[in-house]
Amino acid sequence: MSEENVYDKAHELARTIRSSEEWKALAKTWEDVDKNPEHRRYIEQFRELSMELQALQMQGKDPSQEKGEEWNRLLQKIQSDSTLSKYLESERRFGQLMADINRIVSGPVEELYKNSRGK
């Protein structure tokens, strides 16, 4: 398979992702969130805080109780609002799709390293 063909397949995959139900649901729910500045602010704060907490965990550090409580308060606000909770669920489903695709696409590299360890 030529290099150009690999890129063609990657573009085809991107088009397929855009036509998936997961992508369509994410795009629709984001459109609904984006219409309301308060909704958008909650989602942005939730993302920022989630990334901050993940970074601490990756460093082997525990987040402060205050940060944990702030994250829980934001999560409760999001879950109590149907627009925001639909968005969060759409984002979770799309994230799972992308994780599955990444695992599949990464397969050849994993196979290479598994096979080289056996030598």
Rank of each mutant, 00 (worst) to 15 (best):
S80G: 08
M51R: 11
Q65V: 10
T16C: 05
L26E: 01
E31N: 11
Q76E: 11
R103A: 09
W30F: 08
D8N: 11
F94I: 06
S106F: 06
A27N: 03
S80D: 06
Y113A: 09
L75P: 01
S82F: 11
V6W: 01
V109H: 00
T29L: 03
Q54W: 05
L13T: 06
E4M: 12
E111K: 15
Y7L: 13
K28Q: 08
K114P: 02
E4R: 07
M51W: 00
F46E: 10
K28I: 07
L75D: 03
K67C: 04
D8R: 12
E31R: 09
S50P: 00
D34G: 03
K35C: 04
T29D: 05
E69K: 10
E110W: 04
Q76W: 03
Q96L: 15
L112H: 08
L97G: 11
W23C: 05
R73I: 12
Q54V: 01
E91I: 02
W71F: 15
W30Y: 08
S64Y: 02
E91M: 07
Y87D: 05
R15Q: 10
H11T: 08
N115C: 07
I17H: 02
E111H: 09
M51K: 09
I78V: 01
D62I: 12
G95E: 05
G118L: 15
S82T: 10
L75M: 10
G107K: 14
K67S: 05
D62E: 13
Y113V: 13
E70M: 12
G68D: 02
S2Q: 12
I104Q: 02
S50G: 03
R73L: 13
P63W: 00
R15D: 12
L97S: 09
W71G: 04
G60N: 00
K77R: 11
N36L: 08
W30I: 11
M51E: 03
M51L: 14
T83M: 11
W23R: 03
W71T: 02
D32R: 12
L88K: 13
Y42S: 11
Q65N: 08
Y42R: 12
